[in-house]
């Protein structure tokens, strides 16, 4: 690590999504790994510009959904067929048909929870401390400005100032950790 331990990274500000996108392409091609782009809304095409892989949230959803469906079917089978069989209206004690609506709802319920927890886990949220929030300018990342931050832990951090300048950043600031 060449930079002093106190530095979190370099924060560069941009005015428009197009400038941000062009700069992100440069950072990606320069081979940075510990860096991120900040924008008040998701920008179409930015994932490719950053070279991000497809999000893994779907796997959490799938796991949740499978759990929900199995829980529903097992619960109903246990309650109505296994633990206390009781004939009602001459209907079968258990069939997946009448157990379906409840299992379907539980599939959706646990899929939704899986999605939420997957999102939180993949984004490492909730996160109670972020050095970027100490920067006054960065408050506009949720309003109308666009930022790139290259972190000091990146092996190529030595060239960061140069890259961001050539990418057309208006303002470049050092963020303390």
């Amino acid at each position: 690590m060449s930079a002093p331990a106190k530095t979190h990274g370099l924060l560069a500000e941009f005015d428009t999504p197009a400038d941000l996108m062009a700069a992100a392409l440069k950072c990606r091609d320069a081979g940075y790994t510990k860096w991120d782009v900040y924008s008040p809304f998701p920008i179409h095409g930015m994932d490719d510009a950053m070279g991000l892989k497809k999000s893994l949230v779907g796997w959490f959803t799938f796991t949740g959904g499978c759990t929900g469906f199995t829980t529903g079917m097992t619960m109903i089978w246990f309650m109505n067929k296994f633990d206390y069989p009781l004939v009602v209206g001459g209907k079968p004690l258990f069939t997946p048909l009448y157990a379906f609506p409840v299992s379907y709802e539980l599939t959706i319920l646990l899929s939704a929870f899986g999605t939420l927890f997957g999102l939180a886990a993949l984004c490492r949220l909730p996160k109670w401390y972020n050095p970027l929030f100490k920067n006054e300018r960065f408050k506009r990342a949720s309003n109308d400005k666009f930022f790139i931050c290259i972190e000091a832990v990146d092996p190529k951090f030595g060239h960061a100032q140069e890259t961001l300048q050539s990418a057309g950043a208006k303002i470049i600031e050092t963020v303390e950790d």
Partner: peptide
Amino acid sequence: SLGWSNSNRHWSNYEKAYLILAGLSTPL
């Protein structure tokens, strides 16, 4: 807001999660 920082790495997961939740809410 859970410490949301508008990071694009987060937006990428967020958009996927939002799409999935929309996909779940529709049959629901």
